[in-house]
Computed example of a mutant assay.
Amino acid sequence: MVTSIRVSNELRDRLRAQAAREGLTLGAYLARLADAEDRRERLQSLKATIAATSSVEIATHSAESAEWESAELADQ
């Protein structure tokens, strides 16, 4: 399905020029911009979650990770 969005002529021209420099259609370029924004939001959320993590939780995670990393895998 295709749709139209209303933007100023100046913005449309900027986006078209940016897309052309990347060798993309305007639709593909807008999809890439949307994907980049989704990624930025996910990373911002992750950063906030890490910042809210207590030092006890970080220490527990580090200890558990170290234990898993030092474990030897064997077929039984």
Rank of each mutant, 00 (worst) to 15 (best):
E41P: 04
E57I: 08
V56F: 07
I50R: 14
E69C: 07
L46N: 14
R40Q: 09
L43D: 04
E41D: 08
L33C: 00
S45K: 13
L30P: 03
R40V: 09
A66M: 02
L46F: 12
V56E: 09
A34C: 03
R42E: 03
T60K: 15
S54W: 06
A51F: 00
G27N: 12
T60E: 11
A59Y: 04
T53I: 02
A63F: 06
A28T: 10
S45F: 03
V56L: 12
E67A: 14
A28G: 10
I58H: 08
W68R: 15
A66R: 12
A28P: 01
A63M: 09
T53K: 07
R39E: 01
Q44K: 15
L43Y: 01
T60I: 13
E69H: 08
A31Q: 12
I50M: 08
R39K: 06
A66L: 05
Q44H: 14
S62N: 11
L33G: 03
L46W: 09
A59T: 13
E37T: 12
T49P: 04
E67G: 11
R42M: 06
G27F: 02
Q44V: 13
S62H: 09
A66V: 04
Q44I: 13
T53L: 01
A28L: 07
L30V: 09
A31S: 12
S62K: 14
T53Q: 02
Y29W: 04
D38Q: 08
S62M: 09
S65L: 11
H61M: 14
R42Q: 09
A34N: 05
A51H: 03
A63G: 10
A63W: 01
A59P: 06
A34G: 03
S65P: 03
H61P: 06
R42W: 00
W68P: 07
L43E: 04
E57K: 15
A34E: 04
A63K: 15
S62Q: 09
A36S: 06
R42K: 13
T49A: 10
S62E: 05
A52D: 00
E57F: 04
E64P: 02
R40H: 08
R42T: 08
A51E: 02
Q44R: 15
E37S: 09
E64Q: 11
T60P: 07
E57M: 08
S54M: 11
D35E: 02
A51N: 00
A36F: 00
D35C: 05
T49H: 07
E67K: 15
E57N: 09
L26R: 07
A52V: 00
S54P: 10
A59H: 10
S62D: 05
H61K: 15
E64G: 08
I50F: 03
E69T: 09
Q44Y: 08
D38L: 08
A48C: 05
R39Y: 05
W68N: 13
S45V: 10
A34L: 05
A48E: 01
L46A: 14
A59W: 03
R42P: 00
D35H: 06
E37H: 10
T53P: 04
L33Q: 04
S45E: 01
A52R: 07
V56M: 09
S45P: 04
E37F: 01
